[in-house]
């Protein structure tokens, strides 16, 4: 698999009252084209900073990120960020939100395209609803569809489902897998939920406590659909949790 994203020795510190506070300390990895890589790590430890840098919103102090061999310095439509709190515009209805990224005249039938993706994520019939009329799960679907409409090559998902309740979280994971089955994208997923990582990812990277480095890598070779109660998944989960310093026995 050719490398789509190459992250090379990223470092980032923030300034605090007591001098520089390193949050990311030399993170390197590669993501293959069409691969879904999950990064898990303890809360409040550089995960979102790392995502911000990879998606192009933030600059690292040193190190580089390249996409398809070209260095990434600013965000672009090629990779869309989906974050925990969401960024569906509350003042636009679902269809207008989905058409937001379709600027210029190169997209042809924008409404048709928006409606196609609304249907793909299960929002058919809600095109004219405003976000405040939707549930949390539906908002996530709208956000996912808005990203898919612009045909991004990469999805950056930063704790995408962690604001949802457990049931909706599980449902959205299955939904994401179904959508990715229809349209393959390269996905970088950041989460603190180990089970979610195993459920979705081809590979799981475990980050250390602050400052973040990659501490371990786990290949997830279990074929889809994955049964979360299977011994393989449970063993892997325990191994990852142990890596994070949590013992389940």
């Amino acid at each position: 698999m050719p490398a789509k994203i190459i992250v090379k020795d990223i470092r980032k510190s923030y300034t605090s009252d007591r001098g520089p506070l390193p949050v990311v300390a030399g993170v390197s990895f590669e993501i293959g084209d069409g691969e879904l890589v999950a990064v898990v790590g303890p809360s409040g430890c550089g995960k979102s900073t790392l995502m911000s840098i990879i998606a192009g919103f933030d600059r690292p102090d040193s190190g580089s990120v390249s996409i398809d061999g070209a260095e990434r310095t600013k965000p672009s439509k090629k990779g869309i960020l989906i974050s925990q709190h969401g960024s569906v515009f509350p003042w636009l209805n679902v269809q207008q939100n989905l058409m937001f990224g379709l600027n210029g005249h190169t997209h042809g039938d924008k409404e048709g395209l928006a409606d196609h993706y609304a249907a793909m994520v299960g929002l058919k019939g809600f095109e004219t609803n405003y976000p405040h009329e939707l549930s949390g799960g539906m908002l996530k679907r709208a956000e996912l569809a808005r990203a898919l409409v612009v045909k991004p090559e990469i999805l950056y998902m930063d704790e995408p489902f962690s604001a949802l309740d457990a049931l909706m979280n599980l449902r959205m994971r299955n939904e994401l897998l179904r959508v990715l089955g229809e349209e393959r994208h390269t996905v970088l997923l950041i989460t603190h939920d180990v089970e979610e990582a195993i459920h979705l990812a081809d590979r799981v990277l475990v980050l250390s406590a602050c400052p973040a480095r990659i501490q371990a890598t786990f290949e997830v070779s279990i074929p889809h659909p994955r049964k979360l109660s299977s011994p393989e998944v449970q063993n892997l989960r325990e191994a990852i949790l142990r890596e994070l310093g949590v013992y389940t026995e």
Partner: peptide
């Protein structure tokens, strides 16, 4: 987050 989204979609 809204400004970032706009930036993201270019």
């Amino acid at each position: 987050r809204y400004l970032r989204a706009a930036e993201n979609f270019g």
